[in-house]
Write a protein that binds this DNA or RNA. Structure first.
Length: 429
RNA sequence: UGGGAUAUAGCUCAGUUGGCAGAGCAGGUGGCUGUUAACCACCGUGUCGCAGGUUCGAACCCUGCUAUCCCAGCCA
């Protein structure tokens, strides 16, 4: 019976079939140990001379790393085996003998590994990161779905910029130009007014000349948007969702965190309530360590790290000056210079994980903002309509998936948190 | 787009004052009946990033170029 290695514990004493690839092998006299991986785990198999056909024994000596194999044998509990179980081999069928696998069992540099990303994904740590990525996605979706959110995805091909055109990828769209979406937010506002509570989740594209450990040109963003919500409610949502997926990872993916040598105690400290501080208070905290920063400046990466080092939890920074936020942010009725915006700065220097806020919901004010930003009114006609036909206070946020995974996994650079990273100088493989 | 660094064996790196091109790992062969990144012995491997220059002599010094990595702005 074909089984997966992650389920091996259920088959003690039984004969099973494992379909996978050779991870590594060792030998000692008349006994051979092979490690087979199948994507769900790694299992050791023992091949002893005299207990199997001589022919099989010879094949084992020849199998190369990453050759595809089908292993048949009996499951046995044994403390000497990594993982606690091993398979006493009865038969091994080589589906294809791999030649000179480039990623040998030793340390490699990132320069070497990146062009082999298609193979690098087979390694233990990358496997663990991808499993955590999957779990975070699933947890966020479950969290939103349980609260009655509707997944209403927004287009990737869009007619115009959301916030300026310099950072957009342009594509030919029959006889006109289109752009790859850099946010689903504006469309989210339309679906929120149609469905109440919505989210979109998909790839977003930024043609920024960014070459930092927190940037990809193609990344995934989860964007919830809610009708009849105000800034405090948006912060509650961001906080609750974060606590939810952190708990889920600690519950279901401890094994993967261990493979990644992640300090779990840091994640166990994530508890409600998160500190909520105004932009002004944040500036004061940062200025204790960096006098260069002035009120009105946006935070750079080192500033975010100073902030995150001051707390165990993620920090919700709200009421940024309107000048450093997008045109659609609603202004604070008590102070027109401030926006009803919020960013969530992740712990341990993981950076801005969430950006969002309450949207401008007044037709005349929004029109004025468009003009101030020299945005083409015609392209935004449909967006303005949302303020003409039953406007209401509403808002939401965007969560950067790769940065979130980087934080949870304790991986510094976001390129390892997506199967195939797209960066300024890299679109292969 | 700036600032910093690197480029030597398949990989990770060392290479002293300018004087024969090195090690570990991976690979190959042999040995070992419970190995855990197994171990032991033996074996092979080079456009020293590219193009010039200085020098009796350059991996090393000088000039230019190319590529890559790190950090940052913009942002999620």
């Amino acid at each position: 019976m074909h089984i997966y290695i992650e389920d091996i514990g259920k088959y003690q004493g039984k004969d099973v079939i494992i379909k996978g690839w050779l991870f590594n092998k060792r030998s000692s006299g008349k006994i051979r140990f092979i490690l087979v991986r199948d994507g769900t785990g790694i299992i050791q198999s023992v091949i002893a001379k005299g207990e199997v056909k001589d022919e099989l024994f010879k094949i084992v000596d020849k199998i190369t790393q990453e050759s595809s194999v089908i292993l048949t044998g009996t499951v046995r509990k044994d403390d000497r085996a990594p993982g606690g179980y091993e398979i006493i081999a009865k038969d091994i069928k080589v589906i294809q003998m791999a030649e000179d696998y480039p990623i040998t069992p030793k340390e490699h540099s990132i320069e070497f590994l990146l062009p082999f990303r298609h193979l690098w994904l087979r390694s233990k740590k990358q496997n663990a990161i991808m499993r955590i990525r999957h779990e975070i996605i699933k947890a966020c979706r479950d969290f939103l779905d349980n609260q009655g959110f509707i997944n209403a995805d927004t287009p990737i091909l869009t007619p115009a910029a959301v916030e300026g055109t310099t950072t957009l990828f342009q594509v030919d769209y029959y006889d006109q130009n289109a752009y790859l979406s850099q946010s689903g937010q504006l469309y989210n506002e339309a679906t929120a007014a149609a469905l109440g509570k919505v989210y979109c989740f998909g790839p977003t594209f930024r043609a920024e000349k960014s070459k930092t450990r927190r940037h990809l040109t193609e990344f995934w963003m989860l964007e919830p948007e809610v009708a009849y919500i105000e800034l405090d409610g948006i912060m509650d949502l961001a906080e609750d969702m974060t606590v939810y997926f952190v708990e889920r990872i600690l519950e279901k993916r401890k094994k993967e965190l261990k493979i990644l040598e992640r300090d779990i105690s840091k994640l166990e400290k994530i508890k409600k309530p998160f500190p909520r501080i105004t932009y002004k208070q944040a500036v004061e905290i940062i200025r204790k360590k960096d006098k260069q920063l002035k009120y009105g400046d946006d935070f750079g990466a080192p500033h975010e790290t100073i902030l995150s080092d001051s707390f165990d939890n993620p920090i919700l920074v709200h009421h940024y000056p309107a000048g450093i936020k997008a045109f659609y942010m609603k202004r604070d009725p008590n102070d027109e210079s401030l926006s009803l915006s919020v960013d969530m700065i992740g712990p341990e220097g993981s950076g801005e994980l969430i950006g969002g806020g309450q949207r401008e919901d007044d037709y005349k004010t929004l029109l004025k903002r468009l003009k101030e930003n020299n945005l083409p009114e015609k392209s935004y006609e449909w967006y303005l309509d949302l303020r003409k036909f039953g406007t209401c206070p509403h808002g939401g946020f965007g969560l950067g998936l790769e940065r979130t995974i980087g934080w949870i996994c304790g991986v510094k650079h976001v390129r390892e948190t997506i199967p195939f990273p797209r960066m300024l100088d890299r679109v292969y493989p």
